[in-house]
Design a protein around this nucleic acid. Structure first.
Lengths: 147, 147
DNA sequence: CCAGGATGCGTGTAGATACACGTATCTCAT
DNA sequence: ATGAGATACGTGTATCTACACGCATCCTGG
């Protein structure tokens, strides 16, 4: 105990139960697992997620997509860069000239189609690791409004 | 339904229940909330987490710390950069000259001490948002071995 | 019509994340 | 002793994340 002299170390023990550490740790591990599966498909899970959301929900402005993904708008803007470069998404002005409507291209759909089986394997793998209660826990977190 | 023609769209609906999206979404939102509280303390939650772990567990090599944090070793190496620059941690070779022992400095302890109240507020805030079941869900995920 | 607040975005800056690859050191069986 | 495999790391590259700030456009009360 090198920090035995630290009078209030006991207080800091609380930090061991940090919700932030728990959530990020889980997210990192889960992301690595998905990415390891997606790698063969040549697409990252972040990108796959964006593309599949566009595929499922149709075109939408950046802000709305960011909300759906629980991501900062400016973060999403950066993430769209590589996707646009690959021509997997299209960007055009909406009725409101301020809005930038994002849509998935035919090529983007192809990417989703081809990479879906890999995503599916990753999903199955992590589902097994999580177990029924772990999956339920994640769904609960998803349903919570965390701001 | 702009993608009504897409024959297998139904299959892709599964992507809506992606465990990866759920975990990352939660982690992003939670991280933003913690960081907004920590900002006043001049330290990021990522950094606070690293420092407090060192404070609680004492010096250790990079690899071990990375495992504890559920982080890639190389990621941790990058994250240690700013901390070392601020002199919040010390780096020295261990008995095994390959290993780099990381330790928290007196200044680093001061940072943890001063920023702890802000962390505590964030923890309380998110605890309320999560609710008892949400907290339990997060603890369950933390206990799961996800690789 | 027309300020003034609200809304939708991009960029500068800075840090967080991780894979592929390469280096140095250790360990152990021969 | 020594060579092969294991271990502990750093770096190059690329992406992900988000705050502060600023710009353009929309909308609404006067």
């Amino acid at each position: 105990m090198k920090q035995a002299n630290d009078r209030d170390t006991a207080d800091y023990m609380a930090a061991a139960g940090c919700f932030c550490l728990a959530s990020r740790q889980a997210a990192r591990k889960i992301t690595r697992l998905y990415d390891s599966y997606m790698q063969e498909a040549g697409v990252r899970i972040t990108q796959f997620t964006i593309l599949s959301q566009l595929m499922l929900r149709g075109d939408m402005p950046i802000g709305k997509l960011a909300t759906i993904l629980g991501m900062e708008r400016t973060t999403l803007t950066r993430n769209l860069g590589p996707l646009e470069q690959q021509k997997w998404i299209s960007v055009k002005a909406g009725e409101d000239p301020r809005a930038r409507m994002i849509g998935i291209t035919a090529q983007g759909r192809g990417v989703v189609r081809r990479s879906f089986p890999f995503w599916s394997k990753a999903q199955a793998h992590i589902g097994k690791l999580l177990g029924a209660d772990g999956q339920a826990a994640l769904k609960l977190l998803e349903s919570r409004n965390l701001g």
